[in-house]
Design a protein around this nucleic acid. Sequence first.
DNA 1: TGGGTATATATGGGATATCATGGTTTTATA
DNA 2: TATAAAACCATGATATCCCATATATACCCA
Lengths: 151, 151
Amino acid sequence: MGLFLSTAVNKIDRKGRVSIPSHFRAALSGQSFQGVVLFPSHHYACLEGFGWDYIEEISQRLDTMDFFSNEQDDLATTIFGESVQLSFDNEGRILLPQGLREHAALDGDAVFVGLGRKFQVWEPAAFEQRKAESRQGIKSKALTLPKGGVV
Amino acid sequence: MGLFLSTAVNKIDRKGRVSIPSHFRAALSGQSFQGVVLFPSHHYACLEGFGWDYIEEISQRLDTMDFFSNEQDDLATTIFGESVQLSFDNEGRILLPQGLREHAALDGDAVFVGLGRKFQVWEPAAFEQRKAESRQGIKSKALTLPKGGVV
DNA sequence: TGGGTATATATGGGATATCATGGTTTTATA
DNA sequence: TATAAAACCATGATATCCCATATATACCCA
């Protein structure tokens, strides 16, 4: 397995904890780090999430760049500097840092959307809007999957 | 594990001590030397930091460069000449040498930014500027990760 | 098939441990 | 002996652990 699928909505409790949907946790069960990495999306008011292996992959790609190059620094500052490593508690929850909650305007409920190798976390109303937009986008541009490609 | 992620701001006390964020210490927990290596960045008014293992890797990479090139001299001078090895106290703090504090204009608060294999230490206002700059840099140059997608 | 039981998941709350921070005392050093 | 550095101790805030419970899901057996 290892792919994030489907959508689920969970509650954020007064301490700022949320359960990661169990099927998302199942997708991560094989990994060394039991938790997720979250990152504020630059396109939308939502969070992007993935497993530890994905971060390591990014790190390896960055390592192929020059040591103290500006390009490497720019990418690393935005990608690594803004992502947070959050481990599961015994109940499969994470504690959402304040900054991330604000970025996605999360309060009360959180929508988890599976997108294959990554997932997103949305405030419910914002997600409804996004969903409508994306349907519209698919219609107007007649988007299809690239041949044999990944989303 | 072993990657530096996310951003945290800690206080420098009147003796010049700062806590290294606990998740950074966790990333270094497997290493023989319990502490960090810091040196003044030549690109920015900040400090660059990493664990002991990374110093060795840098040394190896320098060996692959032209022997008496200016570039190698610069790097070698910076990295080996200006680096300071600072060990944790029982509370996970280091004592910042005066010269380094001045280079990064550190006073009061210090921002720790994870960049994967290394991290940086910034004066808060200076980092805000740097953050904007790096986002801009990515956009304008349409930077993507080598051989692969953007996050 | 129906109904009931067991199991897993999501959620809440109190107790406990960790972290960042400040200060005091002891040790090393010049 | 003067000074800086290291070790030690204290504390509030916050994160983590642990237990309880409700609800939903899977499972079993008549």
